[in-house]
Design a protein around this nucleic acid. Structure first.
Lengths: 151, 151
DNA sequence: TCCCTGTCGATGCAATTGCATCTATATAGA
DNA sequence: TCTATATAGATGCAATTGCATCGACAGGGA
């Protein structure tokens, strides 16, 4: 079995991607912490649930949207529920499952997190690249996604 | 105090960056795990130490290179030492500190990890973008770094 | 109907991480 | 010199994460 060697350009881009993404996440998380707000993962889940609307989402649907492991979603939802940010509803046609819906308090929390998170995004990347460059970046990253996005 | 709102292009690029980087890290880590190899962080440290050569590095120098918290470096080095991959030497002119040097076994481990890690890089990004595109990506990411790289 | 297999979501336990703090040494200033 | 402050690195403890598994229900086939 033959193992590939990556091109030098690939190694360089990989290194940058790893370092930059970690730096950015860390700074965004720090900003939230400084504001007494919960971690980014909370935002991601609240965001998805807010987009899903009144119908809510099944936990397993959340899993691939937010890219978290099943047990992490399970525990994160338990915390969100304990804080009154989401509610779990039994689902009629599947006795195993449940539907998770965002509450008004959850929407408010999402808004508060966004005030800080959005500002971080503006600071960390919005101010550093032009609109064209940001689109170019998004385009390149889209092709690395799984599944890839071919715009 | 006025909070900025990010441009839509910035939000889109941010979202892609977050999702793609997590996906890629996860896949690379999975490949290592499947090969019975230690996590990426081990590679990063062994790599820096290998580059540093016989002189080794002080733990605090490692901290900003690998972007890990001080306590994580401390514990990671303890594990690497327990596995015989690095050795800690007292440093003459500073009684608080130590110098960490990679051992032959450490170099060998680095080589083994790279066989898998490098192949992941080739698969995950080398095969998806051209050399020109990879350079463009690295260039854009470099400007997001702290400190930014202006090539 | 009764398995058998698959999926949904939760959880016990071990490993890892984060936070705060500690010890030891260095350095600067009175 | 003596004291105060800063830096290097380690570590106790709590919170989080990963892994494996579990219990409950669904769906299909005999």
């Amino acid at each position: 079995m033959m193992k590939k060697s990556p091109a030098p350009e690939a190694v360089k881009a990989w290194g940058r991607l790893m370092r930059v993404s970690r730096q950015l996440v860390e700074k965004a998380e720090d900003a939230l912490k400084a504001g007494g707000l919960p971690p980014l993962a909370w935002y991601d889940v609240l965001h998805e649930l807010a987009e899903a609307g009144e119908g809510g989402l099944r936990p397993f649907e959340l899993i691939d949207r937010v890219l978290l492991a099943q047990y992490n979603v399970s525990r994160l939802l338990a915390r969100l529920e304990a804080d009154g940010l989401v509610e779990k509803l039994p689902v009629s046609d599947d006795g195993r499952g449940q539907t998770v819906r965002i509450t008004p308090a959850g929407r408010e929390m999402r808004r508060r997190i966004w005030a800080v998170y959005g500002a971080s995004i503006a600071d960390l990347i919005g101010d550093k690249l032009s609109a064209k460059e940001l689109e170019a970046l998004a385009g390149l990253l889209g092709r690395l996604r799984d599944p890839p996005i071919t715009e």
